[in-house]
């Protein structure tokens, strides 16, 4: 039972990150490695703010803004300095490792005995004692769903339309008299904002920051997005963002199962990578970009 609970908790937390990667990978067609740096950045900022006595809820918007800033920088490197998409992310990811160490001051910052968004006077008051084991899951689910709904709402705005158009056909965006580079930067900002937000919540759930938690973030995010969009593509009544959230839950469940079957936890990143490979092979999302596009197209209307 504890295992199931932990899968759902972590799956929901990583789902916010996966929603960010859905924007970059599926909508903008931009493999964004920045997330390996922006996820732990959210965690680092949160650990520092909370250990200094800041309200844990304040940490959420702060981390979103910090992540958005990082996304803007990746975007500027790609758009203004004309560095290839993958390399722009790798440059930022590498630089952020040092930035995160500087923010946190050291490689590991525990925040035990501190208030978090899950454990504070307000939450303890409104959530009945009996639901205590499910408190974390409850809070996380609400945040993830609100994030998903906000993202859905944004995608239906004029600005959201441009974002969808720029990944689909950037010539059209230019024809509309809009700077396609700017639209890409906005997309990267929102995506990395979500990733840092996810990192913030993760640190609060784990009650510590560790410099290594960012390793493999991109792989986890991509795996969730691909499970969500490939495996669940037959389920037509689901919105694509919902599929991504479910994809994240499935992925976390698979990793947990592998650990449960006796693999030592030092193999965690290996499992993460091997599972991703399996998903790529069976999801057939490797060299079928051109073919995969219309499928994604069929879905996004729903």
């Amino acid at each position: 039972m504890a295992l199931v609970l932990s899968v759902f908790e972590q799956g929901m937390i990583y789902a916010i990150m996966a929603l960010g990667m859905y924007i970059t990978y599926k909508i903008l067609d931009f493999p964004d490695m920045t997330v390996d740096g922006s996820f732990p950045m959210g965690a680092a900022i949160t650990a520092i703010l909370i250990s200094r006595g800041m309200n844990p809820f304040i940490a959420l918007p702060v981390c979103f803004m910090a992540g958005a800033l990082v996304g803007v920088l990746t975007g500027l490197i790609h758009v203004k300095l004309r560095v290839r998409d993958l390399l722009s992310g790798i440059i930022m990811m590498t630089a952020l490792y040092s930035v995160n160490l500087t923010i946190a001051g050291r490689a590991n910052v525990p925040i035990y005995n501190r208030q978090t968004i899950f454990d504070n006077e307000f939450m303890n008051k409104i959530i009945p004692e009996a639901l205590n084991p499910y408190k974390t899951l409850l809070v996380v689910t609400i945040i993830t769903l609100v994030t998903k709904l906000l993202l859905d709402a944004y995608m239906a705005t004029k600005s959201g339309f441009l974002l969808r158009a720029v990944g689909d056909n950037d010539t059209l965006v230019t024809s509309l008299g809009v700077d396609k580079g700017l639209v890409k930067i906005i997309g990267l900002a929102i995506a990395n904002g979500l990733v840092a937000l996810s990192g913030s919540i993760f640190a609060q759930q784990q009650r510590f920051f560790d410099i290594s938690i960012g390793t493999g973030t991109a792989v986890i995010g991509l795996a969730s997005v691909i499970i969500g969009t490939s495996l669940l593509k037959k389920v037509n009544f689901l919105k694509i963002t919902t599929s991504v959230v479910i994809g994240s839950l499935i992925y976390k469940a698979c990793v947990a199962l592998a650990v449960r079957m006796g693999l030592p936890s030092s193999y965690l990143k290996f499992i993460t990578a091997a599972l991703f490979l399996l998903i790529l092979v069976f999801g057939m999302d490797r060299n079928t970009k051109a073919k995969a596009k219309p499928q994604a197209a069929d879905r996004s209307q729903l």
Binding site: K158, R164, D168, K293, A296
Partner: peptide, 27 residues
């Protein structure tokens, strides 16, 4: 000249908005 993943209404709406700001108004 069009966006394949968007429907006709969305495509025409986006074209109709050319010259105006692409803000957070409904698409």
């Amino acid at each position: 000249g069009t966006c394949p993943s968007m429907n006709i209404l969305e495509n025409m709406s986006i074209a109709d908005n050319k010259g105006k700001p692409f803000d957070l108004g409904r698409g």
